[in-house]
């Protein structure tokens, strides 16, 4: 079982020579060292084994090649870093721009709470945003 970071393309082996069908991942590499934040793909690699079946008593065994595990993969986001508020900028007309960022997984929602409340959400998960809100 291998893990690949999508930006650096660096690969890590998590599991080898196993018959398991699941793995408890603690955000570490194969030697239990914590991995940096980022987007990872885990994939499986296995040689396709040849298995011999005895179809009928007295007949020749039938060898067949089993499928490999290629094609099974999944992307996982490892993000231990909290989002940041970069700054508050006056816009005029009694409005403020709130700058925020999350450099790993991107932002999904920014909510401001005060005498005036505002909220903005995204499906594109921008890494940095500036949301204009009433100054209140």
């Amino acid at each position: 079982m291998k893990l690949k970071e999508v930006t650096t393309k660096k690969e890590y082996t998590l599991l080898s020579d196993s018959h398991a069908s699941s793995f408890v991942w603690k955000g570490t590499d194969g030697s239990n060292a914590p991995l940096p934040d980022g987007f990872y793909y885990w994939t499986l690699e296995a040689d396709a084994p040849t298995i011999t079946f005895i179809v009928e008593e007295g007949k020749e065994p039938v060898p067949k090649t089993a499928p490999a595990y290629n094609g099974q993969s999944q992307m996982v986001l490892l993000d231990r870093t909290a989002p940041e508020v970069l700054g508050v900028h006056p816009l005029g007309n009694n409005r403020l721009a709130i700058e925020t960022r999350d450099m790993v997984g991107g932002l999904k929602k920014v909510t401001t709470i005060g005498s005036a409340q505002g909220s903005e959400s995204w499906t594109t998960s921008p890494i940095r945003t500036a949301v204009a809100v009433p100054a209140g």
């Binding site: 793995f23 991942w25 980022g38 987007f39 999944q74 992307m75 986001l77 499906t123 998960s125 890494i127």
Partner: peptide
């Protein structure tokens, strides 16, 4: 940074649960 500025979250199906400190990958 990691990923581009408009990396679509739809491309990921799992987010590591930092509070639980582990997740089960199954296949």
């Amino acid at each position: 940074g990691y990923a581009s500025s408009y990396f679509s979250m739809n491309e990921t199906s799992n987010i590591f649960p930092v509070a639980q400190k582990q997740m089960t990958l199954s296949w």
